[in-house]
Design a protein around this nucleic acid. Structure first.
Length: 308
DNA sequence: CGCATATCCTGACCGC
DNA sequence: TGCGGTCAGGATATGC
């Protein structure tokens, strides 16, 4: 499940292998891949063909490639969301098609193709305008933070908050906005308009590090607790990034790059019944929001006023 | 409007 | 060996 670290590994791979190249042709091989591009796949192709991939930028789980004209600036971007199972691959044109190949980009240099492979089709592609947004500043983490396109966001990303690894993330504002909400802590962490890039795995891991229960009411969260959650997120995301970042030097941009981290380092996620690494108490698994929540019953006690 | 839930999707896995 | 049921969850449409 690609969350922030996995998407960042993919972003670095795209920056390494695709940025600077000119798109010659695009094929969309499944109707669901362009469902968010309302004008349809042919329009997405027309808006991409002949343009230069100027950069690879990320905010939260969204990745986008500003598309520049020969003049150099970019008014639109190719937005990619990996969903649950999406992968971006850089492969030779004669490599056999993957079973779940959904989109394919060829370039004028005749080099390797970019492919979007997605088994479960929760992911998607859209070509959309870059727009100025109230939060201003660089749009996210990219290779060229001073470029004109880095100060605008693709329309579908305009409502997405900055992520915990963004240098401009405002910790105090996060704590303040958290207290304005009437919900549980984990629900808030999964809301991409409050903080982005967090999914089920990193939410559970960060809450374990912060020793906070997922149903703790946001309304009464202290600044110190909010800071502890952010520290937990940054810790686990940075570690996952370090583990996944080792493989992007190859000619293969793969969302599975961080899998080695999962094998060894998850404290609670997917560890139901196994001992908490801190206190040895068996990890608890609860049904929550149509998915699972993992926590340590001793380190993360249920608050009296839990907000389920 | 704020918040919660239903929905999309496919393959792995499990019990019978 | 097959078959039905369950599980995985990001983002959004909807409903209250």
């Amino acid at each position: 499940m690609p969350e922030l670290p996995e998407v960042e590994v993919v972003r670095r791979g795209v920056a390494r292998w695709v940025v600077g190249r000119t798109v010659r042709e695009v094929d969309f091989l499944h109707p669901r891949v362009t469902r968010r591009h309302l004008a349809g796949p042919q329009d997405a192709v027309a808006r991409t063909r002949g343009l230069v991939v100027a950069d690879a930028v990320r905010r939260g789980k969204y990745l986008w490639l500003p598309l520049a004209t020969a003049g150099g600036d970019a008014d639109e971007a190719l937005v990619v969301h990996l969903g649950m199972s999406g992968q971006l691959l850089v492969e030779r044109a004669d490599a056999p098609a993957e079973k779940h190949l959904r989109a394919l980009w060829r370039f004028t240099d005749g080099g390797e193709d970019l492919r979007f492979v997605d088994q479960r089709t929760f992911g998607g592609i859209a070509v959309v305008p870059l727009v100025a947004t109230p939060d201003g500043g660089p749009g996210g983490l990219g290779e060229s933070p001073d470029a004109a396109w880095a100060h605008r966001l693709p329309v579908p990303v305009a409502h997405i908050a900055r992520d915990p690894l963004d240098p401009a993330f405002d910790d105090a504002a996060f704590a303040r906005r958290l207290r304005e909400r009437s919900t549980g802590l984990k629900r808030a962490l999964l809301d991409q308009s409050l903080v982005s890039g967090v999914g089920n795995i990193y939410a559970d891991e960060a809450l374990w590090r912060a020793r906070l229960h997922y149903a703790r009411p946001t309304r009464s969260t202290t600044r110190a607790q909010a800071d502890a959650v952010l520290a937990g997120l940054r810790e686990v995301m940075t570690a996952a990034l370090a583990a996944g970042g080792t493989s992007f030097d190859s000619l293969y941009v793969n969302v599975n790059g961080a899998s080695g981290y999962f094998d060894r380092s998850l404290a609670v996620y997917g560890q139901g019944g196994r001992p908490c690494p801190r206190c040895g108490t068996p990890v608890r698994r609860d049904a929550f929001m149509n998915r699972s929540s993992f926590s340590c019953p001793r380190c993360q006690p249920v608050p009296r006023s839990a907000h389920w």
